[in-house]
Design a protein around this nucleic acid. Sequence first.
DNA 1: AATGAATGAGAGTTCATTCAT
DNA 2: CATGAATGAACTCTCATTCAT
Lengths: 225, 225, 225, 225
Amino acid sequence: MPSRLLSDKFCAVRAKRERRKEARPGELLDAALDLFVEKGFAATRSEEVAARAGVSKGTLFLYFPSKEELFKAVISENLAGRFEQWNAQFAAFQGSTPEMLRECVQIWWDNIGSTKVSGITKLMFSEGRNFPELAQFYREQFVAPAHELLRRILQRGIDRGEFAPVDLDLAVYTVVAPMVFLMLNRHAADICGDGRTPMDPAQYLALQTEFILAGLAAGPGQRKP
Amino acid sequence: MPSRLLSDKFCAVRAKRERRKEARPGELLDAALDLFVEKGFAATRSEEVAARAGVSKGTLFLYFPSKEELFKAVISENLAGRFEQWNAQFAAFQGSTPEMLRECVQIWWDNIGSTKVSGITKLMFSEGRNFPELAQFYREQFVAPAHELLRRILQRGIDRGEFAPVDLDLAVYTVVAPMVFLMLNRHAADICGDGRTPMDPAQYLALQTEFILAGLAAGPGQRKP
Amino acid sequence: MPSRLLSDKFCAVRAKRERRKEARPGELLDAALDLFVEKGFAATRSEEVAARAGVSKGTLFLYFPSKEELFKAVISENLAGRFEQWNAQFAAFQGSTPEMLRECVQIWWDNIGSTKVSGITKLMFSEGRNFPELAQFYREQFVAPAHELLRRILQRGIDRGEFAPVDLDLAVYTVVAPMVFLMLNRHAADICGDGRTPMDPAQYLALQTEFILAGLAAGPGQRKP
Amino acid sequence: MPSRLLSDKFCAVRAKRERRKEARPGELLDAALDLFVEKGFAATRSEEVAARAGVSKGTLFLYFPSKEELFKAVISENLAGRFEQWNAQFAAFQGSTPEMLRECVQIWWDNIGSTKVSGITKLMFSEGRNFPELAQFYREQFVAPAHELLRRILQRGIDRGEFAPVDLDLAVYTVVAPMVFLMLNRHAADICGDGRTPMDPAQYLALQTEFILAGLAAGPGQRKP
DNA sequence: AATGAATGAGAGTTCATTCAT
DNA sequence: CATGAATGAACTCTCATTCAT
């Protein structure tokens, strides 16, 4: 069939160029994430981003109207709701709540903490004040859903008698803080390492999680006196 | 008498001026710390620092040869070690080790966490990569002594049978991480808040400390299966 | 029959395309004239010209090697002298010289002043300094013949006793100036209007022509006392 | 007196620098007017303006926050109302209205037409469309007062029987048009010269004025048939 | 012939740093 | 010592122009 042939030819001709065109934004966003995390938003020159993506300065602005919009796109791209899936996954969880929390931490580590996406948190801590609307966006898209998920897990543990009652708002932070610490330290050249042997994040996470579980099991303050 | 009056006035003016003159570097460092913490190194203009210190642009460069040297001075100046005192204080501590850890956290909070000094940590996390020598300096002056102090406390607990045996290298991080989290979040416009009620750092610290103590008491991994 | 239909369609499409192909340069010149007149040469983007002509950026440069050459072509193309015809027409004129002048003005208004061609004058006034060769070309092709035609008319009036003797060089400008004024004001968003009611160019022209005729009849300076 | 001495010294020390500082904006505005008129706003580079004013690029932006603001300042600076004085002057005029008109034209020529202020009109014609708010400002500050002044003069002539009745709105343009023509042609490299001998604006103005007076005396249209 | 993705020189603007006063 | 006007390197962004498709 001629039409098919024509169509094939058309596709072949367009293929390479189009593939690049479609791949460009992603390549640029990857490069931008790398550099922003490494050097900070302000200290990263647009041209560097372009160069790392293998294109020229001008091309960057073909896809993103400004450096700030590029920043926003980096956030959007990488924080696009993973929470839908995770919320569903944990809603269907059958095991004990301590297992649930361990799995939650593991999933976070595998998908975010150990990947370069964790750099976004570093970015927000470093540059958030200079970009309030971005900070707000980050809070809405990432922080709030995370807090909600953790609250549901903790509440489940309390409801099932696995955890002693506890101020959920605070308890959530006991889970969040180590994650944030790992994400920031990872992208700050292990600034909080003691300079001897590097800390193993997976082991730290495991220990930290057990501490949290011990604390939740014991109930807050009961051994204070 | 006019001449006397004038002379007195002149002396008064001169005295104030000289007092200010000697205070200049400190005022500039204070102003710089505030602004660097708030906006980042690159995003802070030299003129702003000078203005906040109440002097002109030129005067800043009279005391610090460059913006970068100013940054280094800000870090160095504020890292004046308090560990000598603290080490002595804790070497003489008589009570239980959990009490010791609680006091340690409290002292940190009162002297560092809740004060402007916490901004130094924010700065090191944000800009450390661009100032490797400073990062190393910070690790030596601040991180290493802190880790050592905490190690000694934890070791004391184990030695006295108050804590179960634990990997000290990892356990230290369970104490450090919440501190770092608080210091950074404080200077990042509560970027990790969920946007509802702001978290109370003191309450969070208390809960987090009890969790750590529960974990240390229980021993790691014992409830894992 | 599908094939016939297709074929017909194809031919129709092709025919239209070829017709367009030949029209391309003209369409581009029209678009360029519009935009250059409206926004100036520097402020007009090549892509806009192409877009208004309904082609892509690349196509523009297929027909004109540079934006500057496009500008030159816009001027040259629209300066196609009509003076041969007009000179012949006025050489054969039979009526009175005032009638002749009125007709001259009318012809100018109908063919140039009220049409897009007037934009050329706007362009030369705005950009002439940046294109000296074009300015010279414009003077030769347009200004000089116009002045000569007007001189012949005025001389005829003097010769026939209809006009008092007058410095022809100056008198020509009294005819030219209102024309230039109208052409420029037209393309400058009525910048010389007082903001109340818009001026009617035809009425203004008529009045202005009568003033000129009155002046020519009276002779210059005679009432100066 | 010491205080006087001190004050003198102070003034002497400051003098040179301050004089320059106060002169800078004016020098920059002059340079900008020259270049904008000569090359157009868009085609003039900021650095050129600075260079012509004898300063560096950065200094320009010390006094004007952007190129566009510089443009606005050029307009504002040079259009500062001269009409107060002129209106008063003509309100008190005692002679005949033809004399009044001649004087009006002369004053315009001496103060505007023959000076570089006339370049502003060129600017407005060339770039006005790209800066609508500036165009409006120009109309309000310059065009409208000028039209009103001319209307009053013409009306006086009619009232005193020196001029035949005429449509004032149109008649005003017969006076304005030659002025505009001269201002534009002057700044467009005599684009409307015929290339032979340059036209003498003063002589042209005189002749043109007499034509207008002849026309006004005769009344419009009366010799049409 | 036509397209539009890509380029990179160049323009506007900022700001650390200098230095005459 | 202190000032702040001046500088110019560096950065973001634009757009005329090219060329693979």
